[in-house]
Structures are given as structure tokens and as C-alpha cells.
């Protein structure tokens, strides 16, 4: 009864929370009040009707058919599909590269081990945007055209694009069963090489977390190196790797928004054009934030399911 009120263990938490809650509410109210006032002064009060107006701009490459007469929402959807395309292929590529490089860190070959380290250190200390610009402007845009293009049995890499499948040169222009634009190829290369370095670290950490004794025990039981890896080490390493992969995958999805540097029309780049044409800043930003949040959540959900699969099944 004698405790002063500022030492009261029931009252104090309530008081602190009340003050914090009030502060947050007042700040939000002030910000929203300003937003509504400023928006109505500019004649831009929240409305979604503009989404049905014709976009008036074209998108250089889309999976969904798109032209300038289609409405804004179709443009944004085409951008989203482009984002999803680069993220999906990027995830697969980066995982493959990361696993390769990460396991190279355990190779018996010293040169390979050092090369793996060098690659990771090199990539992690250079900004991704710089890397993307480098791939697009320095590497891909300086590719030769016509007969000088880089030709492989199943692919041709020329300045006009990457041609896959059966390729042929007609009047100095390449044709193939599948053409991938340089913008997409540059973005994909940059993202895969960047994320690959981070995933390699995750894989390396995961494999390093498996005690040496596990390797030795498996080998002395007569497992071949391949069996040791697939039956003993990998199942244990995956428990450490999967949560790390989750955050790297989300990073990759968010990093894909730098596509604008390579001139690839992803969601962010379409949204930027949309904003410039309509001035609908709040709506565009809401769409962007909501969509990226949704992509992150979907990746997280899938990876959490995977995580449950690889965790120890305790009885």
C-alpha cells in the first residue's frame, strides 16, 4: 500500500502502454489528417477508378498480351507477371549456383575452395545495383551481332537477344524457337550471381554445422562419399539451411525490383511509369507495398512448410 505510484507494478505497464499508444495514435492521426488535406487540395483523393483508364504506354516484353490501349490494371498485372517470372527462374538458378559454390567450400581441392571463398567475398562487397548495371551495359550490350555472335549447339547469344532451341541466321538476324531479351538475361544473370553468393554462405554454414564425427562415422560404416552426403550430412544440414534460404529467397524477390536498372519492365518499373502518368502516388505505392508483401508472405509460407518437412520428427 505504501509503494508510490511510479513503482506500482500493475499501474506502471498500463501507464507506459497508454502513453505509447497515445503517441502512436496521435502521430498516425496527424499524418493521415495531413494526407487527406493535402490530397484533397491536389484533387487526388484516394480512388481506384483510374485503374480502368487506358494505360497509353507500351511494355517491351510481356508474357500476357499487352498494348497501350489496355487499362492500367492490365499493365500492372503484366509487370507483376514479369516480376514473378524473374523471381521464379532466379530462385532456381541461385539455389543451384549457391549449392554448387557452397559445397565447393568443402572440396578436397584447395584451389576450388579458395575460388569459392573469393567469389563470395567479391560479390558480397559490391552493390547489387552496380553489378546489374555492369552485366547489362558492359557485358550484354557489348555482345556482337550476326555471325560473330556467341554460338553454342543449343543457344545463340547475340546483341539482339538470347536464342534457345533450334537457331538459324536469316539475313544477318538470328531466329530461334525461344528468344530471351537481353534485359531479362542481364537481370537474371545479375540476380543469380548475387543471390548465389549469399546462398553459398547459407549452404556452407549449414554443412559446417554438421559435426565432423557424422562424416567419419558414415564413412567408417562403409557409406560411399555420395551416400554420406545424401543420407547423413544433407538431411542434418538442411535443418540449418532452410531458414537461411527463406530470408535469401525473400531478398531475391525484393531485389528483383532493381530490374529498372536493366530496362526490364517489372512491377516496380511499370508502377513508376504509372505514377508519372497519373500522379496517383498513394494508390501506386499501396499496390507496390501490398504486392511485394504478398510475394514475401507466399515465399515464407512455402519455406515454412519445407522447414517442417526437414526438421527432426520427434516422437
Amino acid at each position: 500500500m505504501n509503494t508510490p505510484w511510479w513503482r506500482n507494478r500493475r499501474l506502471l505497464p498500463l501507464l507506459v502502454q497508454a502513453v505509447v499508444g497515445l503517441l502512436v495514435l496521435v502521430t498516425i492521426a496527424l499524418l493521415l489528417g495531413n494526407l487527406v488535406r493535402n490530397l484533397s487540395a491536389a484533387g487526388l483523393l484516394l480512388s481506384w477508378r483510374w485503374l480502368n483508364l487506358p494505360a497509353g504506354f507500351d511494355i517491351s516484353e510481356t508474357l500476357l498480351p499487352f498494348n497501350a490501349e489496355l487499362p492500367y490494371w492490365r499493365a500492372l498485372l503484366a509487370g507483376l507477371v514479369n516480376t514473378v517470372r524473374v523471381v521464379l527462374i532466379g530462385l532456381i538458378g541461385a539455389t543451384a549456383l549457391g549449392t554448387l559454390v557452397g559445397s565447393a567450400a568443402f572440396s578436397s581441392n584447395g584451389l576450388l575452395r579458395r575460388l569459392s571463398r573469393t567469389y563470395v567475398e567479391l560479390i558480397r562487397n559490391v552493390p547489387l545495383l552496380l553489378q546489374l548495371l555492369f552485366w547489362y551495359f558492359v557485358v550484354f550490350l557489348s555482345l556482337p551481332n550476326g555471325t560473330a555472335a556467341i554460338q553454342l549447339p543449343w543457344a545463340v547469344l547475340a546483341k539482339s537477344g538470347l536464342y534457345l532451341g533450334s537457331t538459324q541466321l536469316i539475313d544477318g538476324v538470328w531466329h530461334g524457337s525461344l528468344r530471351i531479351t537481353l534485359e531479362f538475361a542481364a537481370l537474371l544473370t545479375g540476380l543469380i550471381i548475387h543471390s548465389g553468393a549469399f546462398i553459398a554462405e547459407v549452404v556452407r554454414g549449414g554443412v559446417a554445422a554438421v559435426p565432423r564425427g557424422q562424416w567419419e562415422a558414415a564413412r567408417s560404416l562403409g557409406f560411399t562419399p555420395g551416400q554420406t552426403l545424401s543420407r547423413i550430412v544433407l538431411p542434418q544440414a538442411l535443418r540449418v539451411i532452410v531458414p537461411g534460404l527463406n530470408s535469401q529467397y525473400i531478398s531475391l524477390a525484393k531485389n528483383s525490383s532493381l530490374a529498372v536498372a536493366c530496362g526490364y519492365s517489372d512491377l516496380y518499373s511499370v508502377a513508376e511509369t504509372t505514377l508519372n502518368q497519373t500522379g496517383r502516388a498513394v494508390e501506386v505505392v499501396l499496390i507496390l507495398l501490398g504486392t511485394y508483401l504478398a510475394i514475401d508472405l507466399i515465399i515464407s509460407l512455402l519455406m515454412n512448410r519445407l522447414n517442417q518437412l526437414v526438421q527432426i520428427q520427434e516422437r
Binding site: 499524418l31 490530397l39 525484393k254 531485389n255 505505392v285 507496390l288 507495398l289 508472405l297
Partner: peptide, 25 residues
């Protein structure tokens, strides 16, 4: 979680285009 869910570029975009609306003139 809100900040970590958004790419930095969209937040910078928000800062350049909406911060002016959120704060008094």
C-alpha cells in the same frame, strides 16, 4: 515486419512521392 517486407526502392519511392503529402506543407 512492414519495413522488411518492402523492397528499399519502393520505400525510397514512397519517401520521394508521399512524404510531402504526409507532413504539413
Amino acid at each position: 515486419e512492414f519495413i522488411r517486407g518492402a523492397p528499399l526502392i519502393t520505400l525510397l519511392f514512397l519517401g520521394q512521392n508521399i512524404l510531402g503529402f504526409l507532413l504539413p506543407g
